[in-house]
């Protein structure tokens, strides 16, 4: 174990822990923009700089391993000045159109601008102008809002193993693009969208939908494959408008294209909304009330059971539905109807 002092507080961390991790353990708030504990340290945004005794210059806490006896300061006047300059520089090359930006309310840059009270900008100057047209149904890019934190590039490479995007150009014009600007080999998992700290990457599906105000967040479980990813549904009224996952979930916040973007079926106009009964073979469906439907089903099932025995009935329960529903379903067949003819499509 390693012992160090951060802002006059002692802390013990495991070998290999970074100064940032040690500080977070002490609940010391150090601003970051390019850091994500799920990815390798990167050290690009320079906001997490700290002063360490014996080191000539401030260093990034996200990349610096903690060592025994280290004395760290996280909040000096000098660090404040440097961080503020960094935020100011970022804003000097940012559209600052928060009113209409999809990222508002969920934007780290916005929070930093607020925290450092930046209204005037000393460094107003040229801004990048990346005009681009994206042809994909999932992800919207607004590259002028990119802060070059590299999270999207890293998550695509380190986590997804795809490497669909990388860096191009140098200096002020440096940017994130697919290889050669067009060869997009993307799986549309949207991991990049989930880590983007600004409105540079967003989901096309939630464009124009409510951002924060009036949005309800519901933690639940994904309904696609057997991975069991934790998801958070964002809804407004009875519309599901967006799906995210929390970084501290067992799936670490990562989702696939279906889990993240495949939710429109919920509010599909094709949804069945009323019971339907076809009273004669070959006849048409007729709308019915629930009482009618329940009684009709119960009656027909009972008739068959009475005439041919319980084993003339069968039920297919669902690998798509809840445990409780499946339990009640098989219980119905076993205890109320009296047959073990219950199965589901585990085999398909």
């Amino acid at each position: 174990m390693i012992n160090l002092t951060i802002d006059d507080k002692q802390i013990e961390v495991a070998e290999g822990a970074t100064v940032l991790e040690a500080a977070r353990k002490l609940n010391i708030d150090i601003p970051t923009l390019c850091h994500d504990p799920r990815l390798k340290p990167y050290g690009a945004c320079r906001l997490c700089i700290v002063e360490i005794g014996g080191m000539a210059k401030p260093v990034t806490s996200c990349t610096t391993p903690a060592t025994n006896g280290m004395v760290v300061k996280t909040n000096t006047a000098k660090l404040y000045r440097l961080r503020k300059t960094t935020v100011e520089l970022l804003l000097s090359d940012h559209p600052n159109d928060c009113m209409t930006c999809i990222g508002t309310g969920d934007c780290k840059l916005q929070e930093l601008a607020y925290a450092y009270g930046i209204r005037e900008n000393r460094f107003q100057g040229a801004m990048r102008d990346h005009n681009r047209v994206d042809v994909n149904p999932f992800i919207t890019r607004e590259q002028n809002k990119c802060v070059m934190c590299g999270l999207c590039v890293r998550v695509c490479e380190e986590v997804q193993g795809v490497g669909a995007i990388g860096y191009a150009e140098r200096g002020f014009e440096a940017k994130v693009i697919p290889p050669f600007g067009h060869d997009l080999k993307c799986e549309f998992c949207g991991q990049c969208v989930s880590v983007c700290p600004t409105g540079a990457l967003s989901g096309r599906l939630w464009s124009g939908k409510p951002r924060m105000a009036g949005v309800k967040f519901t933690d639940t479980t994904c309904t696609y494959c057997g991975c069991g990813c934790n998801i958070t549904l964002r809804s407004t009224g009875d519309q599901v408008i967006r799906i995210d996952s929390k970084p501290d979930s067992h799936n670490r916040g990562w989702l696939c294209v279906k889990g993240r973007f495949g939710f429109e079926f919920i509010n599909s106009a094709d949804r069945l909304t009323t019971p339907l009964i076809r009273r004669q073979k070959g006849g048409e469906f007729e709308q019915a009330t629930w009482d009618e439907a329940y009684d009709y089903v119960a009656k027909r099932l009972s008739e068959i059971k009475d005439k041919h025995g319980a084993d003339a009935l069968g039920g297919l329960c669902s690998a798509r539905c809840t445990n409780e529903e499946n339990y009640l379903f098989q219980k119905m067949f076993r205890a109320r109807i009296g047959t073990n003819n219950v199965d589901h499509c585990a085999r398909y």
């Binding site: 300059t85 150009e169 140098r170 200096g171 002020f172 440096a174 940017k175």
Partner: peptide, 17 residues
């Protein structure tokens, strides 16, 4: 400025300013 790799903010934007 033109040789900055663009990774860190102070160099990418600071040298530009």
């Amino acid at each position: 400025q033109s040789e900055s790799c663009g990774k860190c903010v102070p160099c990418r934007i600071g040298t530009k300013r």
